[in-house]
């Protein structure tokens, strides 16, 4: 597997976007593209062509899993792996996402100092 470089990150919470950006750009060195909603991300995904999708689960309008479903319908980007972030630590959601092929499910609150390592570890399992 090629080295993980470009990540498309979607979360409706601006502060989470900020913290994640800090975590991934300061501690790690990723090319990060961030969006505040599913539709915005969907519009940009073909242009960004990320290596990985980092998606919040609970978002108004379009949830993370719904966004993922739509991306998978686009031929050019249909096989981009996805990591989900959720505040709901219920096993069913986690299990369900994993069963559907999610690379990893990260629970909030996550540790910004280790988020990058966690993502890389998941990427390396591919």
């Amino acid at each position: 597997m090629a080295e993980l470089k470009t990540i498309l990150h979607v979360d409706d919470d601006e502060d989470i976007l900020e913290i994640t950006r800090m975590a991934l750009q300061l501690v790690d060195n990723f090319d990060l593209h961030q969006f505040g909603s599913g539709p915005e991300a969907l519009a940009a995904v073909c242009e960004v062509k990320p290596d990985l999708l980092l998606l919040d689960v609970m978002m108004p309008g379009m949830t993370g899993p719904e966004l993922w479903d739509k991306v998978r319908e686009i031929p050019d980007v249909s096989d981009i792996p996805a990591i989900f972030v959720t505040a709901k630590a219920e096993n069913e959601i986690t299990d369900d996402l994993r069963a559907r092929g999610a690379l990893e499910v990260v629970t909030k609150p996550f540790d910004p100092m280790t988020l990058g390592a966690q993502i890389r570890a998941a990427w390396n399992r591919l």
Partner: peptide, 12 residues
Amino acid sequence: TPLTSIKGALRL
């Protein structure tokens, strides 16, 4: 969710 931001910021 807010705790994620608070904790994250403080941790950084």
